[in-house]
């Protein structure tokens, strides 16, 4: 099962190329172990952080003797603390993710992204967890570092299927409350829900100081809306039916999508979400490479 799951979601060549990159957090993380990511706390890394006045009780080993000698003042040298990363991957498993016009379902694309990021996270020594959200919280795997855990994540991904209405907003709020320490949250969804509620949800995550990235998965047909005949559209989540003539309503449809996208994008910018709009006709390697490179650049800055 595990080997099958690996080969189902991972491509060795692609991984080989992507593994040259490192998944950075954009904000300091609070981990339980030492790692490669900045921590809001001062620690014992080699990277100087700042001076501060000596207080009684401070470790005299960290007193800067040279400054004392020159200025006759007591200053303590502080260094950055490095900690590990806890990566929560939230996968939207609602029925709408099952849409795929040319055989490529959004859900499959999302699983591939989720699996690759989980693999990269795990192999750079960070903890990775998985939350599958459909009409309820389908699976909730807390972050772990060990390889066996990665296999568990892969098995869960392989067993997941898109069904039911989405409860993504509710679950994200719950997740924001539940995860007390700062963590990286990667949300992979089509976000077909009320955009205001979604933005409110991002605000909540931002308030909890989580670093969160948003993979907004869309099928090209959902953006282009190119049909040559009247259709009977069936809602994948509720099974309700709508008769429509695409050529008549396309203008309004595009306008509606645009309004939604603009609003969502602005919401993400406002709350510092790392927004990625992904159409399923794009190669996931490029999508992930861009994601990693940009984060790497951000981390260096």
């Amino acid at each position: 099962m595990a080997e099958g799951a690996y080969s189902q979601f991972l491509d060795g060549e692609v991984l080989g190329r992507l593994m040259r990159r490192f998944l950075h957090a954009r904000t300091p993380m609070i981990g339980t172990m030492s790692g490669h990511h900045k921590s809001p706390h001062r620690g014992s890394s080699v990277e100087f952080a700042e001076y501060r006045k000596y207080s009684p009780g401070d470790d005299l080993r960290r007193l800067d003797w040279r400054v004392l000698a020159r200025t006759d003042r007591y200053f303590i040298r502080e260094f950055e603390a490095d900690t590990n990363l806890r990566n929560y991957i939230v996968l939207d498993c609602s029925a709408s993710m099952g849409f795929g016009d040319k055989g490529q379902r959004k859900f499959d694309y999302a699983r591939r992204i989720a699996a690759t990021l989980a693999y990269i996270t795990s192999h750079q020594g960070d903890a990775v967890g998985l939350q599958c959200v459909g009409d309820k919280l389908i699976s909730d795997i807390p972050p772990r570092r060990n390889p066996a855990h990665l296999r568990y994540v892969f098995d869960t991904l392989a067993g997941a299927a898109p069904r039911g209405e989405t409860r993504l907003v509710t679950e994200l709020h719950a997740l924001a409350e539940r995860i007390r320490s700062r963590a990286l949250m990667i949300i992979i969804s089509d976000f077909f829900c009320d955009v205001d509620e979604l933005i409110h949800c991002f605000q909540h995550l931002h308030f909890r100081r989580h670093d969160f990235a948003v993979f907004h998965l869309l099928d090209p047909q959902e953006l282009d809306f190119q049909f040559d005949r009247p259709m009977r559209f069936v809602d994948m989540e509720t099974d309700s039916i709508l008769l429509a003539e695409p050529d008549v309503i396309r203008r309004e449809y595009i306008a509606s999508v645009n309004e939604y996208l603009v609003k969502l994008h602005e919401g993400c910018n406002k709350f510092r979400a790392d927004y990625r709009r992904v159409t399923t006709d794009a190669t996931y390697e490029k999508v992930l490479a861009d994601f990693l490179v940009e984060r790497e650049r951000y981390a260096k800055d």
């Binding site: 029925a95 099952g98 849409f99 959902e222 989540e237 709508l242 396309r250 309004e252 449809y253 306008a255």
Partner: peptide, 24 residues
């Protein structure tokens, strides 16, 4: 006999359909 099309982005479709109903 309209072709049946499972569709995810119904929220946009409903808005567009509502706005275009009179003309359609």
């Amino acid at each position: 006999r309209h072709k049946r099309m499972p569709w995810a982005a119904m929220m946009f479709l409903r808005v567009a359909s509502r706005k275009s109903t009179r003309y359609a």
